[in-house]
Structures are given as C-alpha cells and as structure tokens.
Write a protein that binds this DNA or RNA. Sequence first.
DNA 1: TTGAAAGCGCTAACAC
DNA 2: GTGTTAGCGCTTTCAA
Lengths: 343, 343
Amino acid sequence: MAGDEYELVTIYDIAKATGLSPTTVSKVFNQYSDVSEKTRRKILEASEQMGYIPNAQARTLTTKRSWTIGVLYIESSGAGLLHPYFGGVIEGFKKVATSKGYDLMFISKHIGGKKGGYLEHCKLRGIDGVVVVLPDYTDPYFKELLDSDIPCVLLDQESDLKSTISSNNMDGSKQAVDYLYGLGHRSIAHISGGTTYAGEQRLQGYLKAMEQLGLTVLPEHIIQGSYDYTVESGQKAMEQLLALEHLPTAVFVAGDNLAVGAMLAMKKHGLNVPEDMSIVGYDDIEMAKYLTPALTTIRQNTYALGSRAADMLICSIEGGSEARPQTDQIAVELVVRGSCREV
Amino acid sequence: MAGDEYELVTIYDIAKATGLSPTTVSKVFNQYSDVSEKTRRKILEASEQMGYIPNAQARTLTTKRSWTIGVLYIESSGAGLLHPYFGGVIEGFKKVATSKGYDLMFISKHIGGKKGGYLEHCKLRGIDGVVVVLPDYTDPYFKELLDSDIPCVLLDQESDLKSTISSNNMDGSKQAVDYLYGLGHRSIAHISGGTTYAGEQRLQGYLKAMEQLGLTVLPEHIIQGSYDYTVESGQKAMEQLLALEHLPTAVFVAGDNLAVGAMLAMKKHGLNVPEDMSIVGYDDIEMAKYLTPALTTIRQNTYALGSRAADMLICSIEGGSEARPQTDQIAVELVVRGSCREV
DNA sequence: TTGAAAGCGCTAACAC
DNA sequence: GTGTTAGCGCTTTCAA
C-alpha cells in the first residue's frame, strides 16, 4: 500500500532518544507548563531532528476532539461549490477555522461508499462541528443533524436549536427599494427567491419598505422565482412580468443570477435596461459589474459571513453545551452601477 | 465540551449484547467471509438497534488508512474556491471519491493554528492522497509534497513524479484557430495565460495551428496575460493590443475571464465585438453565454477533469508504490456563440 | 467459524 | 518536574 513508506516516528522514539518518558514528550507538545525549559528544548530538538509529526487520529482517540469541522452543502444539482455565494462563504470560513487549528472536511450522505446520513457521517469521523450552507431543507437526514447535539452554524436559515447567521436581508431590500424610490420610481415589482429563508426575508423587506414609502404593491408585481436562483428562472419570471398589462418602471430582483435572466428576457423582447425598466439585483456576483449594463445590486459580504460563521461555530464547539445558540446578521451594501435610471 | 454527549457504542458493547466476541463483530463490519450468516445477521441487528457507528480514527490507527483525500489549492488571493474552474473540478472529484469511500479535506500550510507545511499537514492527518489544483508552483512546501511518497494527482501541470491530468490544451487552441480561419480570418492574435502550464500549452497550440495553416504570427500579436487569468489582466492585454498599428481581425484569448476584460477594453475604445474584432475565449465559464455578445469559447469539461483525477488518484493510492504515475488528457469542445464574424 | 491477546500512537490520572 | 499505567476503539495474527 502507498503510504506505508513513512518513517513513522512516535513519542516513544523521541522518549528513547532523549532518555525521557513519553508522557513528558506528550506534555511538551501540549503546552503543559510543568516541563523544565531544558527538557522542553531537548525534546523539541530531538523531535525536529528525527522528523516527528504527531498523529491526529491517536490524539483524537483519547481526547475525543478531532479538530475537524464538517462542511455541509447541497449535493444534488450542479450547484454547490459552483455557486459564488458558497465559494465566498467557505473561503472566509476556512480562513478563520484554519487559524484556530481546525481543518475542513466535506460531509455527505455517502459514507465509506455506502449511503448513510449526515449525522452518521459526522459521528464516524468524529466531527467537532458543522457549517451548513445551502442545504436541502426538506432532507430528513438534514433534520436529523439539526436535532442532534453536534454544534452547527446555519447560514441563511432560522433555527432555535443551532446558531444562525445571515446577511441583513430585510435591510438589503429596503436599500434597494429606497434607492429606486429616490430615483423617482413608484411602481416597483419584485422577483423573489422562492421559498428559501433568504428569499422570504427579502420579500418581507421589500413589502415593508414599500409600505413605509406609502407605495402600493400590486399582487401581480410579485413574481416567484425558483429557489435555486438560476438565470433560467429569472428569465421565466421576467417573461411573466412582461406579459402584464401594467408594467412597473423598476424591479427589485432577489438574486443576481435571476437578474441576469431577467435582463436577458427583456433583451429578447426588445426592451432595454434601464431605459424601459430599472433593475436592482442582489448578491453582487463577480459578473455583475461586467454585464451590459453593469448591474446595480445589493452586495452580500460572503467572506464576512463565512468568517463570522466560523467564530460562532468554534465558540459553540469550545463553549460546550452551556453555550446557547447565537444569531447574527451581516450588513449589506448597495452598489450603484448602470441598471437603474431616474424617472 | 460539546459532543461528549454521544452515547458511544463500541464493538465491545455489541459483542456483549450478542454474546459474541469483538473480533467477530469487527469481522462483520469488514466483510470477512468467515462469519456464519446467522452470526452476521445477529450482529447487524444488534448494531442497528444499539446505534453502533464505527470510529474512523480507531480504525485508521491500526490500518494506517484514513480514507481521506487532501485538497490542495492556492491559498493566497481571493481566488481558489471562487474560481469556477476549481469548483467544477472539485465537484467532479468529490463525486467519484465519495462513491469509493473517501472523504475530502482541505490541506493548508497552517496546522493546528501554527504554520507548518503541506506535507506535514498530510502526515499529521494521515491523508491517503492529495489532489492538487491551482497551487502556488513556486512554494517550497508544495515542492516538498511533490518529492514525498504521498500519492498525488496534479491538474494542469507536468511532473515525472506524480500523476497528472489536464484538458487537451493544444487541441483547444487548434480548434479555436481553425474556426477563426474557417471564418476567413488570417490575422489572429493571442492573449496568453502567462507562464502557467496550461497557458504555455495553449500558446504552443496556437503557434502550431497557425503554422499548419501557413499563417504568420507577428510577435507583437502575442500578448502575455497574467497567470491569474483575471478580467483586469485581460483588459490590460487588450489595451496593449489596441495600441498597435496593425490590428488583427481576431484574437484567441487563453481564458474567458481574460476575454471578458478584453471585450471591456474594446468597448471603452468604442470598438465592437465581433464587428471590429472577433474573439474566442477559453473555459466556457458560466457567464460566457450571458455576455453581450455571447462569447464563443473552448469549453473545458471541468467535471470530467475532476472525476478522472479522482480515478487516477485512487488508483495510485490503492495500487501502492508499484503503480506508476499516469498522465491523461480530457477532450475540449468549441462552443460557437456570437463573438466571431466572417470576414 | 469463533475468540484471546497484543498493539496502533497518544493522553491523562496519579504517583513519585 | 518527571514517569508509570491504563485505556481510547479498532484490527489482526494466531490459536482453538
């Protein structure tokens, strides 16, 4: 087998080499204070020289701490990793987790080549905690994990049992609507992100902002995009909107991918953005600024989302069961580009 | 500590419950054939009922196999996970690896919160093999890993020591150039991907294709884009090209991001694609089809790249040291859209 | 077909 | 400050 070739050096080897005991060696590598500076130095030196590297599994076996965090995200469809939101979040998460000594492992329903469940997978691997991004909410295996006592942090979800974190979706909607209002728009439609938590929040934020401004919302001006925030779904939603008798002058779209689709649909109908309709998106995906016209949108700070999530999760891992689930929100920001006009 | 609450069931527990020995229980979970059907059933039943889940670290400690594959990608810059190429590759890789019983863990230079190296990290975690995507080639820690005896598969790189896999970059260039030639173009420039392996290959493919068609390549028609394939870099490259006295009628760009930048630069100069210049990209990133005009490009099958990489890596993990490093290539495909015109 | 015993590499009481 | 001992949960000879 490959890997057999490692010259495995153990604490026993370095104990023997230094004439000390394995315990003392162990202590040195676990920052115990009751080791003389001289001994510590001697051990460190020998370890360095003999190429000693601790064995994580042996350590985990006795301590019950794997220093491993599971990453759970939707498995079906081509989404997942490819979704820019996911990438940004994990990037931020990884940075913080890594700096605190944790490694990241993907969690799936397949274990050892067989079908199992998320919880089973976590237990098998001795996972210390899980970060949940874009899960399949309807999955019973996912629910099983939520009901377990494994520390978790959930992104863009609600939960009493686990810590949660999301962007300030309501405020994002408010910023979008207020901005359009400031440009003179009074008839503002909404293409929503379907039945996801974030989608709901953005819809609620939109409704509330409209109300606060004293604007009426026509029921037919709220179009349900699909939960997966695809370009195709945005296209369909805009088609639906364009079929209406009374068109809005602006539309606030719950995701940039949806907005891209919406713009495509308009183009197909010979309509121009922003001349014929102003559009505000949500996310600020990379391509937003390269579209024609460049998309005005609400920027989510995915990196901050991820790093804050890591902080929260590690807090509940290390705080133990007495640590109550927390909830936090990250500020969003309007990025003005070229897809809206004054009316 | 959180997690302590698990009702840890061990093989001893189920041995006791069934009146059998731990050995026999272990055998059942390792598909040994010398267990009577009756015993097997009894053990499986008890395990199911008592909620037994094997302990991966204990298993690894004795077998020296962690069933864990390390994922190594560039840490600096905001790239990495956010890069669509990476996402696609890992998606495909994960699928295959998971189905064969392996889990994926990110490898970094930080270990236990301290700075270490990739190899050290792998040994600490008992990693069975590593998939390398977009590394920092100049990193000595990366070299250290390459020189080790840990099985690795490298994407878009050359190596005698490890298995490698890449798209058929040379052929991609040929397809692009041939296509432009077929449209009547004779003056075809190239914006290259810098000094990466893929970039070199695409450049070579371009040169060879031009030669085969009997076309001359003006030195100033080869512009070095930066190794990171950013939009900004593409912009700069096109600026450089546009400063030339004799403009080409078409340009083959080594990456879609670069192509996006190139198109932006043209627009800034009041030039239109494809009227003033035809452009062929490389990658087929998601946004390619949503650009104006939609980008004609060479599609890399990132998913296939990833799954094939997994096959190769697992082969060398399970084949042991006698398994020689392999090399493979994945076919690419021209996707015709709207960024080229006949001349 | 089944089981006893040793050991993987490490940590944690506890005694010295 | 240092060492002895036991044990984490599992697999693996080897013997029964």
